[in-house]
Design a protein around this nucleic acid. Sequence first.
DNA 1: AATCCGGGGGT
DNA 2: ACCCCAGGATT
Length: 352
Amino acid sequence: MDIHDDLISWYLVNKRDLPWRNTTNPYLIWLSEIILQQTRVDQGMAYYHRFSETYPTLNSLAKADEEEVLKLWQGLGYYSRGRNLLKAAQKVADDFNGVFPKTYTDILSLPGVGPYTAAAIASFAFRLPYAVVDGNVSRVLSRLFDESTPINSSAGKKLFQDLADKCLSTKRPDLHNQAMMELGALVCSPRNPSCNTCPLASHCLSMARETIQDRPQKIKSKKAKERQIDYIILQNDNRILMRKRTDKDIWQGLFDFPSIELGRPAKPDEIYKYVKEALSEHDSAKIKIQKAPVKTYQHVLSHQKLKARFWHFKVEEPFQENSIYLRKNKTQLGEVPVPRLIQQYLTDSSLI
DNA sequence: AATCCGGGGGT
DNA sequence: ACCCCAGGATT
């Protein structure tokens, strides 16, 4: 393959200057790769700086609490990445004597690290010959070889990994991998790619056949399910009752409020009934029934459309607290990790 | 093999 | 609306 020289030459001239490209520290490279999973560079940049400054070393991260890590991760989404970030750091500390593993197999054994991330770390930090296949690379390959197999099918994943393996420059796997991804990000973009400036144009089968618009093929995902949530905010002086989400559901490990989900908007008397049960006799007698929620939001996730309504009650006596429902004062409200939707409500209501 | 898991930006 | 993003884990 003589595309290597064209590709790497192009990369060295056109590459973006990104902080994780100026190091071979496997910890920092791993950190950047986890943050950038399904996340644009622009979106992940601030988080990378935040994490690398708060936890300069792997062992400083390994000592952190999950809530602390999730607070730093707040707003980035896919929170299992944050939880696994801590687990992986602890695993390196415990099982690898605090030294980041140096082989593909050991790197792959870390939670949150799959084939892509393992290959990225192995090649960038240790120059090991493993080819990365991410969204960019599979798109570039599907066009280069005019391959119609859907990139997100099982057969496609196997096929494009095989193609990437065959194309890999074993001389500089690090530069090759970076270059393939950068080409996909800057030139071989999903729509309206810049084929006129592409260093691989003369090798591109899809361009010759004019099938660029049809590559890559992809299996469409089902559309988001709708979900109705009625949140109940109980406020006693400057304290609010919050809940840590522990179920197998969205936002695991983050905090929100007690809620009701009936598959439809809850009626005012259903909210009223719920509130009364959470309070003492004395206080519940003073609660006035609300005819409508205080605020309403729509919050879109990749797989769920949330319609959230917030009912806010001010009560005079402390409410029931247990292992699930925790009392948080104003300072603590700003310290616990919350999903975007809840952050929005707290901000709009001047609660933090 | 299919589904779940966020949030933001581009078109 | 729909698509995509330096994907991985679970079912």
